[in-house]
Simulated scan of single mutants.
Amino acid sequence: MSKKMFRDCMKEYIAGLMARNASPETISGYSKDLEMVNRFLEQRYNGFVMLEDIQTQDLEDYLTMLRVKRNYQPASVNRHLNTLRSFYKYAIKKGWTKENVVAPIDQLKAPKKERTFIDEKEYQQLVHAIEHPTIKTIIQFLFFTGLRITECLSLTLEDVDLEEETIFVQNGKGNKQRKIPISPKLLPVLIDYKENIRPDTESNFFFALAKTGKVSDVYVNRILHETTKKLGWKKKVTCHVLRHSFASNLVKNNVHIVHIQKLLGHADLKTTSVYVHANQEQLAQAIHTL
């Protein structure tokens, strides 16, 4: 087995992710994580590092550095560990190394984060307080479809079929496609947007501004932040919180978890199950049905 440099393996691993059609977020996140690992190792070894020379202790020290020197939260340290696990799995499969030096490292205990979501009443308050007509429509759209903001903003005019009352998501995570029915509460909002609000532009994006022909996720989140501040809310509401709210409200209405999984475009049911945060009262009610 010829020795390979860690930095070369890293580049090949990222190229492999691209070939597998991993999402841009995954590729960018894993690239940054591995760049940081490489910098740490090159400083430690005073030069280029061979994959074969890396020891478990090196990677444990790297993760400790993230926690102690950089004050990373346990969940962030675990994310770096998961990147390394994924990298080593690939490296072994490719025959670059025989030893998985990450295997002995355990994840840190991370406190379970309570997912923020808003209910129907808060949603009405929020929508009422947003003055920008296009952004107001996008907020309503996210609350009633559960789409990721990147999916929402990349929809074209053809993807939103108001006659068939369906949304065709073509650019889902991992390039997966799915169809979402349009809620009867959302349909008149979208018809009004298309007829009266959407600017006369050559852009093919469904959500468009006159100046740019598109809308950025940063702009939507900024208006959300400004609006919640104006309302005096302590709760931090982002576009992703609206996706959580969609899922949580479906759970509350006893929609089957498999249907929620399909609507959210989750590949794994485990990901969807985090929304089923039943409280003690709901559990008591469940027992009373027996």
Score class of each variant (00 low, 15 high):
4 K>T: 14
7 R>H: 15
9 C>R: 02
13 Y>E: 08
22 A>C: 12
24 P>A: 13
26 T>Q: 07
26 T>R: 05
27 I>S: 06
29 G>T: 15
29 G>I: 09
30 Y>V: 05
30 Y>D: 09
33 D>K: 07
35 E>V: 11
41 L>V: 07
41 L>Y: 03
43 Q>I: 08
43 Q>C: 10
46 N>T: 13
47 G>W: 05
51 L>W: 04
51 L>T: 10
58 D>R: 06
60 E>S: 06
62 Y>F: 14
67 R>I: 04
68 V>K: 14
70 R>V: 03
70 R>E: 13
73 Q>H: 05
74 P>D: 00
74 P>L: 02
76 S>P: 01
77 V>L: 04
78 N>D: 04
78 N>C: 08
80 H>C: 09
80 H>W: 11
81 L>T: 01
93 K>F: 03
93 K>C: 04
93 K>T: 11
96 W>D: 06
97 T>F: 07
99 E>Y: 09
102 V>I: 15
111 P>S: 01
112 K>I: 12
114 E>H: 09
114 E>Y: 06
117 F>R: 02
120 E>R: 02
121 K>E: 11
123 Y>W: 09
125 Q>K: 10
126 L>Y: 07
128 H>N: 13
128 H>K: 14
130 I>N: 09
132 H>K: 13
133 P>H: 07
137 T>C: 15
139 I>E: 04
141 F>R: 03
142 L>C: 11
143 F>N: 04
144 F>K: 04
144 F>R: 03
145 T>L: 08
148 R>T: 03
149 I>R: 01
150 T>Q: 14
150 T>C: 12
154 S>G: 02
154 S>M: 04
156 T>W: 00
158 E>H: 14
158 E>K: 14
162 L>W: 11
165 E>N: 12
166 T>H: 11
167 I>N: 00
167 I>W: 07
168 F>E: 10
168 F>V: 04
169 V>D: 03
169 V>F: 05
172 G>C: 05
173 K>L: 00
175 N>P: 08
181 P>H: 02
184 P>T: 01
189 V>S: 01
192 D>A: 15
192 D>S: 10
194 K>G: 02
196 N>F: 07
200 D>I: 11
204 N>D: 15
209 L>S: 12
211 K>W: 10
218 V>R: 15
218 V>P: 00
219 Y>A: 02
220 V>P: 00
221 N>C: 00
223 I>S: 07
224 L>P: 00
230 K>R: 15
230 K>C: 10
236 K>T: 13
239 C>P: 04
239 C>L: 04
244 H>E: 07
246 F>G: 02
247 A>P: 13
247 A>S: 13
247 A>F: 13
249 N>E: 15
250 L>T: 05
251 V>S: 05
257 I>N: 06
258 V>M: 14
259 H>Q: 13
262 K>M: 12
262 K>I: 09
264 L>E: 08
267 A>P: 04
271 T>Y: 00
272 T>Q: 01
276 V>G: 07
281 E>K: 06
287 I>C: 06
289 T>V: 10
